[in-house]
Amino acid sequence: MEVSRHWRLKKQRYALQGEVCPHCSVKIFPPRDICPDCGLDARTPFQFSGRGEVYSFTTVRDAPEGHSEQVPYTVALVRLEEGPLVTAQLTDLDQQDVEIGLPVEMVTRKLRSDGERGMLVYGYKFRPLLRPAA
């Protein structure tokens, strides 16, 4: 994979930095500079909390190049608490059953690796929210 391509995406990938629309206040992730709701310019950076819940999920057993060493892995659509959906892997699941509605939080992990000489790509995954003791 291309070094510059991953460098461009580092703020969103490492820190879940998106945008907020100054016109209609909708929160945007991944950043896209044009508000998907009102169509106006939206370049104001916005830091997402990283908390959300599982909206849907599945387990991948046949992986594309770059992901073979991870199989099986769980991919989810996570509904961030600020509104947007995001595609990401779930991690640190241990024996926990995943279900729709499971509270999760963002962590940074290795996303893919391109062979022995290739680069490693890091970015967001989500793990079950560690519940405070009752």
Binding site: R5, S56, T58, V60, G66, V75, A76, V86, T87
Partner: peptide
């Protein structure tokens, strides 16, 4: 940029829709 790096495949996309 936003799906493939997470290991998404055509079957995974369809599965996410199917479960929901």
């Amino acid at each position: 940029d936003h799906e493939a790096p997470h290991g998404i495949t055509p079957a995974a996309q369809a599965a996410l829709l199917m479960r929901r």
